[in-house]
Design a binder for these strands. Sequence first.
DNA 1: GTCTATATTAGGATAGAC
DNA 2: GTCTATCCTAATATAGAC
Lengths: 192, 192
Amino acid sequence: MADRRTVIMEAAARLIARRGVRGLRIEELAAEAEVSNGLIYYHFKDRAGVLRATLEFINDRAERYTRDHVAAEHLSDPRRVLEQTLLLEFQDTAEVRENSTAWGELRASAMFDDLLRADLAEATKVWDQEVADLIADVVPSLAPSAALAAAQRLTTLLEGLSGRWLSGGLTVDRARELILAAITVELTHLAK
Amino acid sequence: MADRRTVIMEAAARLIARRGVRGLRIEELAAEAEVSNGLIYYHFKDRAGVLRATLEFINDRAERYTRDHVAAEHLSDPRRVLEQTLLLEFQDTAEVRENSTAWGELRASAMFDDLLRADLAEATKVWDQEVADLIADVVPSLAPSAALAAAQRLTTLLEGLSGRWLSGGLTVDRARELILAAITVELTHLAK
DNA sequence: GTCTATATTAGGATAGAC
DNA sequence: GTCTATCCTAATATAGAC
């Protein structure tokens, strides 16, 4: 059974998905987690501490499900691996929603907070390179810079789609369609 | 010369670009606009009223500069029109920054605010269709649904690029490169 | 229309009992 | 470890003079 500290972070993840990072209220968090106001300050230094811990918590969960899903399907076709990896971000489950919301919030916050920018830029760089490697598996002859550019167009499109999905501008299904089509368009172009 | 009400909205636009919608403080706004705290409440009902008016103000300015720029260059090649229209969003000027930031903030807020969702969805739809029409000008034989899908991939990519640019993940120049390349990739694919 | 001064409230944080 | 009660500050909003 999860300890109280974890219960609080789980509640915070739900609340962030519902109200955003900047909408998270300590009192509301206490209610959602069914603990007292004071207990939150026992487990975390302050509001920023709750946020840091929760973001890390969400990130760990996300890495786990990405690894698990791709492994579980033990795909051999590199193109399928690329497709499935990107499609993972478009599922209407609490976990994916919470993760995508947190990521969007992080990016939105980074626009006004210099401290976040460096971390976010680094995480983005890693993610772009991972996708570039997947693309290189599909089209082995590709120049690294071309693979990276294509990867950036896909990951950036993915972020845009995610934003539109979560703000109600797009259904999950439409988002899936568009990212799949974009992969096709990019790969046909690279193979030409 | 601009009246005080306008001065306040201009100041709010600058402040939103610097601190975000949710970081806008009335007192700080008063200082930036060089008016008193109380005057803001004379011209606007409350904080939300300031926000509504300012967002509308920013939107009007943006429509104007888009119209003006495309008209000023009186382009005849439809592909150039498409390119220039999308590239307009990537200029490091105060006006474009303020507009893009506001748009990003609007989308981020819409994730947690049902009232905003409808307006935003509508504005997005209009924008997507405009770009779809530009694409149809380049490739006249195209089915409307195919033009719309390509337009959505481009406008959504643009939003993603804009987010990365403003959060420091990408230079303007890199963003311009990537959107231009994406246009090429899409158009070659549609022409095949 | 504009300012200064002040009321009100919300929300983060702490103290102290158990 | 956990709760209740309370404090403190920051930020919104109003009143009233000019």
